[in-house]
Design a protein around this nucleic acid. Structure first.
Length: 600
RNA sequence: GGGGCCGUAGCUCAAUUGGUUAGAGCGUCGGACUGUCGAUCCGAAGGUUGAGGGUUCGAGUCCCUUCGGCCUCGCCA
């Protein structure tokens, strides 16, 4: 076999005259009858091969049989392309390789889609033939970026003295949190392991085990419906540290992010990153993961709305609801029908019953409201709203009147949609923010109890411990989330390290001592044996890579992702299994065939 | 579990109000051509319109069912 001496992306004019060998895939061929040109591609780029029938008739003869995606090796001499023949579009465009001999290492069937046009090809086909899709430069770049991130992260933590430690994949199921993926145990009949939703308890137990600084790049599993930025199987950068407070954890991880951004993108981030309290995030952005790249803050206008003659507003406020709104700069471009059909149905998806609107127009030097609900706002109210929103000619005011929860749920995504459509931010910019001062618990209306906002191992802030029993809904936790461009990319907390406090929290969450013992007994026991104060954080690696590569689809940054129904189109998992396998596991299914039907 | 969009040649798409033999570009195959680089030119092959049923003189188009993909609400401690 001809062994390559260079990659297909590295030869330059300086290499002219050198005898080289290249290996790769045939990207394209241009057969002129006499001269034949082949673009040979590998992961580094592509290089033009030229076959001359007079100089090397055998190689030329063979070159005419080559087809796209055949795998070949070629050797020859690098030569300048000559005056006017360069291709300035590619890095190797100054030269070509005059091939003396080639070897066909493997033939290829005609690919089911054209690699150069694959960005237009439907994803289903790309996933079915992922090995072809992965050859595309865009996909190679994402794979490479992902590698650069994990490599940088490992180096960073290693330098700070962290140990990478693996934790079990086969774990214990706990009914809290997301739905577990279960794995039947052969040796313990009728029992199941669960795949980890995160290594939370193991990493805390490692702290008890005197590890002090732990990290792991680890696969996690949550059996919930996927989204564009969510996959049942995903990867966390999981970290835990002993003898630390919130500021320690935050500064270590800001440093990590800054190193990654510098090494992968060459971007210098300004540290420290801004922080925003949870309550302020909810008030001004309507979510706990605000997109900070643009303003358009939400305002609670209930006081002003109560003074209007608009029944929708006044009745909602009388019933304890709120009126919140936002001001879309330049929102005049939305027509009445855009607002009343498209935008209104958009917020309806989030439970809002309607969307009140008016446009701000300048008429003879005065700003007045036009259209929609304008007539319900008296002159002085208009002035107050203009001042509150800092509104100008051509802006669009939008209001949702509902419970505070619903108003936020509807306005937060609306804010992002408007900003995106009105191009109110540079989509190459990065808006980092730490969200802090989360409530420890949140009242769950359906279940009639408090739930952890983060998870039940999160420590309350010491100053507020006294009101844990009297006013649990207003105790803040020592939790922190890192948000980037409206995506939660990481989250963590200082943990509870005293068994008594942990039991106290379980009780507040309506988990009885018996239940706590049954589910977390091993962990409570560990806390009894000298658990150090500790805290940590976990990043979503997939989302980090999404944001670094500018894609909005998590499947793009996973080599072999699953579809929305949890199928792998490449391998056709999940699949039916042999009766014998089920028998060994003492399992019986209710239906005989669980194999998904093949697409027709 | 709910809502929305989509499925026509290998790929990307078109096909008027339900109306002739379902078209085009790319790709594929064959031929021509000494400098192309999204090569060009000539020619050819390629279709159960995702599947099944219904309405109709007639269905890619309308209706029902179903399969699959994507987005989303719920869900995601």
């Amino acid at each position: 076999m001809i062994k390559r001496t260079h990659t297909c992306g590295e030869l330059r004019i300086e290499n002219a005259g050198t005898k080289v060998a290249l290996s790769g895939w045939v990207k394209s061929y241009r057969d002129h009858g006499n001269l034949v040109f082949i673009d040979l591609r590998d992961r580094d780029g592509f290089t033009q091969l030229v076959f001359n029938p007079e100089a090397f008739p055998d190689a030329h003869q063979l070159s005419r049989s080559l087809r796209c995606e055949w795998v070949i090796a070629a050797c020859g001499v690098v030569q300048p392309r000559g005056e006017g023949l360069e291709n300035p579009k590619i890095p190797t465009g100054q030269i070509e390789v005059a091939v003396e001999s080639i070897q066909i290492l493997n033939e290829s069937k005609t690919p089911p889609f054209e690699i150069d046009a694959a960005d237009k090809t439907n994803e289903e086909l790309r996933l079915t033939h992922r090995y072809i899709d992965l050859r595309r430069p865009a996909m190679q770049h994402k794979l490479k970026t992902r590698h650069q991130v994990t490599s940088s992260v490992r180096r960073y933590f290693d330098q700070l003295g962290f140990w990478e430690i693996e934790t079990p994949m086969l774990g214990k199921s706990t009914p809290e949190g997301a739905r577990d993926f279960l794995v039947p145990s052969r040796l313990s009949e009728g029992c199941f392991y669960a795949l980890p939703q995160s290594p939370q308890l193991f990493k805390q137990i490692l702290m008890v085990g005197q590890v002090e600084k732990y990290f792991q790049i680890v696969r996690c599993f949550r059996d919930e419906d996927p989204r564009a930025d969510r996959q049942a199987e995903f990867t966390q950068i999981d970290v835990e540290m002993s003898f630390v407070d919130t500021d320690d954890v935050i500064s270590v991880h800001e440093g990590m992010i800054a190193q990654v951004w510098k090494e992968v993108l060459g971007v210098e981030l300004t540290l420290p990153m801004p922080r925003i309290p949870y309550a302020q995030a909810m008030e001004e952005y309507g979510v706990d993961r605000p997109d900070m790249r643009f303003e358009m803050k939400l305002k609670n206008v209930s006081d002003l709305a109560a003074k209007t003659s608009f029944k929708v507003f006044t009745s909602v406020i009388e019933n304890g609801g709120v009126v919140k709104g936002l001001c879309a700069k330049g929102g005049d471009v939305y027509s009445r029908s855009d607002i009343e059909k498209t935008l209104t149905s958009f917020v309806a998806d989030y439970g809002a019953k309607g969307l009140a609107w008016c446009k701000v127009k300048e008429e003879s030097g005065e700003l007045t409201f036009v259209g929609g609900a304008a007539k319900f706002f008296e002159g002085p109210l208009q002035k107050e709203l203009v001042a509150l929103f800092d509104a100008a000619d051509g802006d669009l005011l939008l209001f949702v009147a509902d419970t505070e929860k619903t108003a936020n749920k509807a306005l937060a995504p609306l804010r992002c949609k408007l900003a995106r459509e009105l191009k109110l931010y540079d989509d190459k910019s990065f808006g980092f923010v730490w969200v802090v001062d989360f409530p420890l618990m949140e009242w769950n209306e359906e279940e009639g109890r408090f739930d952890s906002l983060h998870h039940p191992f999160t420590a309350p802030v010491p100053e507020e411990v006294d009101k844990l029993e009297s006013d649990p809904g207003h105790v803040c936790s020592q939790a922190y989330d890192l948000v980037l461009n409206g995506y939660e990319i990481g989250g963590g907390s200082i943990r509870i390290h005293q068994p008594a406090m942990q039991r106290r929290i379980f009780r507040l969450l309506n988990i009885s001592d018996e239940q706590a013992q049954d589910r977390f007994g091993f962990f409570l026991k560990a806390l009894e044996y000298g658990a150090p104060p500790h805290g940590g954080l976990a990043f979503g690696l997939d989302r980090l890579v999404m944001l670094l590569t500018g894609t909005e689809n998590i499947r793009d940054v996973i080599a072999f992702p699953k579809t929305q129904r949890g199928q792998c189109l490449l391998t056709e998992a999940p699949s039916d299994v042999d009766a014998k396998q089920l028998e060994e596991l003492n399992l019986r299914t209710q239906r005989h065939s669980h194999a998904p039907k093949k697409p027709s």
